[in-house]
Design a protein around this nucleic acid. Structure first.
Lengths: 160, 160
DNA sequence: TATTGTTATACTCTATAACTATA
DNA sequence: TATAGTTATAGAGTATAACAATA
């Protein structure tokens, strides 16, 4: 650690390679937001891979669990995706028996989506992963700053 | 706005569609980090599109400007990408005359990357966009919380 | 006419592995 | 043997436009 710091002072990393200067990027919220999100996503990805699911499936399964009978369009809208982007995702979840797709009687254009028992089981395991992930994040952020950090993230989502 | 709130209380949005419940997602840092990053990225995308560049090119051009003569591998490493991912990016920037690629005399395997005059000009315009973007973010975050928010984002980048 | 979901298609970004030319 | 960069290839995720069925 002492060696690493000494090396940095001379513009080198511990590995002996020239240090890269980030210039104004280092202080920009936009850039650091992206880097932080990538790191957190990657970390969650590792955890969810242990149970054979991609992180993207987690939000979809949760939204279906929280909104039984939701349509594909409403699901896409909630996640900020086009309905055509949902088709292959739902195809995959239905094919693997995690989601049931049933035509609505009221409006026969729409499907009503629900989790199967297997889907609920997978979601429970993914949720356990997510909780571990959140605990890791909490340790990094600090319990006192968590609420404030979350509030700021929510405000940024409304940027325009 | 009042109508929207009243509608929400009844579980409907202003548009009359059923509101979607986000359940535990609403309070998870990981999910909100992703949503915030997507929103901010989209907003910057709009600004940079006005000058005909994608957001991804901005970080690349900045890193080259800050580290004249940097190699493609070092560039990829700094951005957390594989060297093979850099090839098409650099091909594009060189083809459009923004970056100059010259073989190093010391090590004839590596290229030394530098901005051309056109590249410096494009970067200056992108930087102006980024400054506007940062000002928008600052207004949302609040000047008093900015430093703390940035510090937290940097800590999250080291999650593992 | 408008909407739900599918299809065809394409684009962006990314990675792995095999290759070349150098070291 | 190891490294810098390229190529071939593939995969995930997303979007637009046109379409069929239904409203």
């Amino acid at each position: 650690m002492a060696r690493k710091k000494a090396a940095r002072r001379k513009g080198k990393t511990a590995g002996g390679k020239a240090a890269v200067r980030f210039g104004p990027l280092a202080d920009w919220v936009g850039f650091n937001l992206r880097m932080a999100q990538e790191s957190a996503f990657e970390a969650f990805s590792h955890l969810s891979r242990e149970i054979g699911e991609s992180p993207g499936r987690f939000a979809t399964l949760t939204l279906i669990a929280e909104n039984p009978g939701i349509s594909q369009s409403a699901l896409g809208h909630a996640a900020g995706r086009d309905k055509s982007s949902m088709t292959p995702v739902l195809d995959d979840l239905v094919r693997r028996g995690l989601v049931a797709r049933a035509r609505s009687d009221e409006d026969r254009r729409t499907y009503r989506l629900n989790l199967t028992a297997a889907g609920a089981n997978t979601l429970a395991r993914l949720t356990a992963c997510a909780r571990r992930h959140e605990q890791n994040l909490d340790r990094i952020i600090g319990p006192r700053d968590r609420a404030r950090f979350l509030r700021t993230l929510k405000r940024v989502q409304a940027i325009s």
